[in-house]
Nucleic acid binder design. Structure first.
Length: 411
DNA sequence: TCTGGGGTCCTAGGACCC
DNA sequence: TCTGGGGTCCTAGGACCC
């Protein structure tokens, strides 16, 4: 038998747990972590709050309605990214093959570490103990022959769970499992498959591939494999990731604005955030995408333009965004603005001569990317904005589930 | 004080070239 | 004058993930 052994590690209620660990007054209490200003949602809540019906994606007042004693904590990104980085360093004591899926989830391929540490279960218990000891938080771990199943397994027991799916048990576990439990099958796909009378992974795995391909194109084969619990995708370790394909920022304004000058100021600010990050990544891009959400929340549009040359200077990005804005007539006050740079080209950079130095550089850059993506840094654009119209802090939730605004479905 | 922000991948259709 | 195909690039939009 030649199979891989993959761990998926999921921090339980990560942001809320970090806050409770940092502040003893919050322990054992229902708390909710939110972004910086009024127009925000609950990004993570403690298990005490969840027991009272508080869910990710709720507005603060909704959370308070179902749990009046709910304590609201404004999130601190740096705390979370710092903790996340440290936790991933622990993982790398057990294998170099660590892939951070998000700020609070990672996969580890421990296939080649088993002989050193005895077993995957041993590794899992060691990791749990070290995370609890160092950070005072718990995690759920799934052990399985591939990433898809490991992630499925880590979801099965929370909090502080440990679930193993042995290769010989895969078919039994999947037989009556609802398809939407699989990572990659969302609400819409579930509905489509249900309409084909496919409800469980067992049914999906037995479905005729041609039937799935007719309906879903190239995804058909992948769907069938998922139903069978097949996933050959490798764990991509730090520094081995593909180059980033787009860099963007968007932000809901504190209040709706329709003053063109104010809109332009905000676009300049977004351009600076996108530009500085692109420069840090050493990329430039030819395509600029502008996104606008109107005051009514439901109507929005996005427009993109592709230039002849690659850019990453903030003023050039700003200019391109303005040129797009000039082609439209705004229909309502603006609630949210976003700018994304894509069609990226990686710029040549000086690489260290020695292999281990290169590896270190790549790993650092990879972690930088993760930190950037999850808002770990403070981007300064000082004098550009006169005070009040600024967006709030960005707290990127670890576990957005379709219970929130996405659930307001118009069908 | 209703409803966030960061991405990736896929599809469809049009323009344009050979 | 009318007819066709393949390939690439681009825009727009949707589904999915955290």
């Amino acid at each position: 038998m030649n199979h891989r052994t993959i761990l998926h590690i999921d921090m339980n209620a990560f942001f809320a747990s970090v806050e409770q660990s940092a502040n003893p007054d919050l322990r054992g209490k229902p708390i909710a972590v939110v972004g910086g200003h009024g127009r925000t949602v609950i990004t993570t809540s403690s298990y005490e709050a969840r027991a009272k019906g508080v869910k990710t994606g709720m507005a603060v007042w909704e959370g308070k309605r179902s749990c009046p004693e709910l304590i609201i904590v404004v999130g601190d990104n740096r705390k979370y990214t710092h903790t996340s980085t440290k936790i991933n360093e622990i993982f790398r004591d057990y294998t170099p093959e660590v892939e951070a899926f998000s700020i609070d989830e990672s996969w580890l391929d421990v296939t080649h570490s088993l002989s050193i540490f005895g077993s995957a279960v041993n590794i899992a218990y060691q990791i749990k103990a070290r995370i609890r000891h160092s950070f005072g938080i718990t995690c759920s771990i799934g052990i399985a022959p591939n990433k898809l199943l490991a992630k499925l397994a880590s979801d099965m027991q929370k909090p502080d769970g440990l679930t193993i799916i042995e290769p010989q048990d895969v078919a039994r576990v999947l037989e009556s499992l609802p398809i939407k439990e699989l990572c990659g099958i969302g609400r819409k796909m579930e509905r489509h498959l249900n309409l084909m009378s496919l409800y469980t992974c067992g049914e999906l795995g037995r479905c005729d591939e041609a039937r799935l391909t007719r309906r879903f194109g190239v995804s058909g084969r992948r769907l069938k494999e998922m139903g069978q619990g097949i996933d050959n995708s490798p764990v991509i370790q730090f520094g081995q990731e593909e180059d980033v394909k787009s860099v963007g920022h968007s932000s809901t304004l504190e209040r709706d604005i329709d003053d063109p000058a104010e809109i332009r100021r905000f676009l300049l600010r977004l351009s600076e955030m996108v530009g500085s990050r692109a420069r840090r990544y050493n990329v430039s891009g030819r395509t600029i995408h502008l996104y606008v959400r109107y005051a009514d929340f439901f109507s929005s549009w996005g427009k993109q333009t592709t230039l002849k040359k690659y850019i990453n200077q903030s003023d050039e990005i700003y200019k391109a965004a303005l040129s797009i804005l000039d082609t439209v007539e705004l229909e309502q006050p603006v609630r949210l603005l976003g700018i994304t740079l894509s069609n990226l080209k990686h710029q040549a950079e000086q690489l260290p001569l020695f292999e281990d130095e290169r590896k270190k550089l790549f790993a650092t850059q990879a972690m930088d990317k993760i930190n950037d993506r999850f808002g770990g840094r403070v981007v300064t654009y000082g004098s550009l904005l006169p005070g009040k119209a600024a967006a709030g802090n960005h707290v990127i939730p670890p576990s957005w589930r379709p219970d929130g605004i996405k659930n307001i479905d118009m069908e």
